[in-house]
Structures are given as C-alpha cells and as structure tokens.
Amino acid sequence: MKKNKLFQYFLLFPVIIYSFLLILIPLIYVLFLSFCKNDSYGGMIYEFTLSNYLTIFDFTYMMILLKSALIALIATLICAFISYPFSIFLMDKSERTRSFLIKLVMIPFLTNSLIRTYGWIVLLRKNGVINSALIGTGIISKPLSLMYNNLGIIIGMVYTLLPFMILPIYSAVSKMDYSLVEAAKDLGASKWKVFKEVILPSTISGLFNGSLMVFIPAIGYFFISDILGGGKVMIIGNLIKNQFLTARNWPFGSAISIFLILITFLLVKLYKKIGGKMDDLGGF
C-alpha cells in the first residue's frame, strides 16, 4: 500500500510543482503587479491602486483595444471563409489524397514564422513581386499599398494562423454525417441553406475552436504588426510589449494582460457552453 502511494506521488508531483511554479504563481504575480503604482521611469511602488485598470478605459487605449480586436476579428473571419469551402471541397477527394493534402497544409508551418513573414515583405512591398507582376502585365499602372498598413497586418495574421482554423474545421467537417447534406439537397434546399441549417450546426464547435486559436494569438502577435505594419499600427501585443520593454510601466502592462486573460476566459466559457472540449484546443 505504501509503495502504491509512492508511485502516485511520482506521477503527480511534477505536474503539481509545474502548474504552481510556472503557471499559477506567475499569473498571481502579474495580478498583484496590476494593482501596483508605477513611478515615471519604471520603478514599482507597492501601493494599492486601481488606476491601471481605469487607464485601460482611457479613450486612447480603448481605441487601440478596439482596433486590434477588429483586426483580429477580420483575420478570424477571413480564415473561416477560407477554411469552410476548403474543407468541404476536400471531401470530394479520396481518403488517401485528403490525408496527404492536410499534411501539406502543415508544411509551411515547419519553417520559421518570421522568415515566412519576411517572405511576405518581398511579395508585398512597393516594388515587390506582386506589384511588379501586376504592373508588368498591365493590370495596374501605379503600385498598390499592400503593406505598412492594416491590410499588410491582416494578410500576415491570416497567413500565420490559417492552419489553426483549417485543422479543427476540417476535422469537424470530415466527422459530419453526410447523408444529412444529401437529404437536404434532395429536398431542394439551396447551397446557403444547406450550409446554414445542416453543416454549420454540426461543425460549430470546430469553428469556435478555430476562431479561438486564431483570434487570441492575433491580438498578441506584435511581431507581425511590427514587420508588416511598419511600426505605424499598434495592437494590444505592441502595447503590452512597450509597457514591459520600453515605457517600463509594468503595472499598466500587467493590467492589460489581466484584461486579456479575462476576455480569453470568457471566450473559453462560451466555447465550452456550445459543447467544445478543452482537449481539442491547440491539438493537431
């Protein structure tokens, strides 16, 4: 019996230590910091204040929050609009081809994400590949502004996060009962109606899973807005980064982080409510 207990400790000890030391304590410390005061050049004063949270609701910062939520939302929607038809169209293929094609989706993501983002600079800039090709073929006469603006950021986000939408939606679509779709079609339902009444309800947790895995990182990926936005567009990720690495206002940076965690928890709660499973998140 004693030996039994020993084995149990062996199996459980690491995860308890880990989850306290590397998850709980850091988060509690950030929560603590978010109620601290800050002197102008980055010293922390351990006095209770709510001002960091009030500052978030300041017009300036609220605009940044809204703007980055909007950028993330657009990126999420585009990802969903690509992933649904893609997954449904894939169902025409044989199982072997399908599994090969899905593996192919992952290949680009085995190279470094920064080098891929850099690839987009080469493509999108004023005299880059796309503009040169369009001008060369006479489609446009003046180069388009494809980057150093919101468009560039959205392209970068969609590109980097697309597989996180494709995989859960594909897995939901492939598990769907296809006879229902056929039945609906036989009854004369339009394509849109089939999608809305049959496909969407049975894949909703896959869609929500993908949306979570696209939307949440898209708020924080400061390097994409840095590189493809030309340092002109600040998203929440940049704001937090600046508070920690430039402005040295850790308490304010912590408050924004706690705010983000709360939003995340809310979204996860919603996801669970519609029947999503936690273990499906972030799995491949």
Binding site: V30, P217, I219, I240, F244, S257, L260, T264, G282
Partner: peptide
C-alpha cells in the same frame, strides 16, 4: 489558451 505574450511577460 492565453495569448503567448501574457505568458511571456
């Protein structure tokens, strides 16, 4: 689930 940047800071 949380944004990487929050874990980072």
């Amino acid at each position: 689930v949380i944004p990487e940047i929050v874990l980072g800071i």
